[in-house]
Amino acid sequence: MIRLLLADDETMIRAGVRAILATDPGIEVVAEAADGREAVELVRAHRPDVALFDIRMPLLDGLAACEESRRAVPETAVAMLTTFSEDAYIARALGGGATGFLLKSGDPYELLAGVRAVAAGGAFLSPTVARHVIDTLGGERLTKGAAARARTDALTARERQVLGLVGAGLSNAEIAARLHLVEGTVKAYVSAILDGLGVKNRVQAAIVAHEAGLV
């Protein structure tokens, strides 16, 4: 069962999101918050598997709440749920430790798939957000590709293989099954990859994987 905290200052939005989540028997909403400060406190109290934060909330916005929650309870994965897809929001959310970025205007399936992906240790970007990121990187792709390849060259062959699967959105369990490894070994590889690349989370590692052509 995936235990989830939902934070949004709009009561109707929370009700709608909760109704979508209720269609998946494997997801349980264990707490709700109407502002960012309350959301962080509830993450500390409930230690959910996933915290789903709106970006624009009173007292503490979702981006700051994400950063505080990740510092306080690093085992809780954070996904952002918003109507906004501007570069600044995406960059700060990913830099703050979020591993999911979902749009309220997206298909309900994206919400369920995103929650399951981040709960399993993977990453999920709404297709609209992913397309925007790819388009934004387009003009710099060759330069970034060369830089990314230089960074991944420092990894072992097995680490590059695991990184490619992280970039493809696979969870640790899925990577373990694909490579016939135990999940603990995959976790160790992922930690070594993050350290080797100098990145904070799987989303940032996945971006390097795409830039390096490993996916």
Rank of each mutant, 00 (worst) to 15 (best):
M1N: 13
D9A: 11
D9P: 10
M12L: 15
I13K: 12
A15S: 13
G16Q: 10
V17F: 06
V17I: 15
I20K: 03
I20R: 05
L21H: 06
T23F: 01
D24W: 06
I27Y: 05
V30H: 12
V30C: 12
A34T: 15
G36S: 06
G36C: 01
E38I: 14
V40A: 05
V40S: 06
V40Y: 02
E41Q: 15
A45N: 03
H46V: 11
P48I: 05
D49P: 14
D49Y: 08
D49H: 15
V50Q: 01
L52E: 00
F53S: 04
D54Q: 05
R56G: 00
R56I: 09
M57D: 01
L59K: 14
L60V: 08
L63V: 06
L63G: 01
A64D: 12
A64V: 10
A65K: 00
A65T: 02
C66H: 04
E67G: 01
E67H: 09
S69Y: 01
R71A: 11
A77P: 13
A77W: 04
V78P: 09
M80E: 02
L81T: 05
L81A: 01
T82P: 09
T82Y: 03
F84N: 14
E86W: 05
Y89S: 07
Y89T: 06
I90S: 00
R92W: 00
R92P: 07
L94H: 01
G95T: 05
G95W: 00
A98Y: 08
A98E: 00
T99F: 00
F101A: 05
F101P: 07
F101I: 11
L102N: 03
L103I: 13
L103E: 05
L103Q: 08
S105L: 13
D107W: 00
P108Q: 07
P108T: 09
E110C: 12
L111A: 07
L111T: 13
L111E: 05
A113L: 12
G114D: 04
V115D: 06
A117K: 14
G122K: 07
G122V: 11
G122A: 15
F124W: 10
L125K: 09
P127D: 03
V129Q: 06
V129I: 15
R131M: 08
H132K: 15
L137Q: 13
G139C: 11
E140S: 14
G145A: 07
A146Y: 08
A146D: 03
A150T: 12
A150I: 12
R151P: 07
T152H: 07
D153C: 12
E159I: 11
R160P: 10
V162H: 07
L163T: 08
L163D: 02
G164V: 13
L165Q: 11
V166K: 01
G167R: 02
G167P: 04
L170H: 10
N172A: 15
R178N: 04
L181F: 10
G184R: 06
V186E: 03
V186K: 03
V186P: 04
K187Y: 04
A188I: 11
V190E: 04
S191E: 11
A192L: 10
D195T: 15
D195N: 14
G196R: 06
N201A: 07
Q204V: 07
A205M: 09
A206H: 04
V208E: 10
V208S: 09
H210Y: 06
E211A: 14
E211S: 12
E211T: 11
L214A: 13
V215R: 13
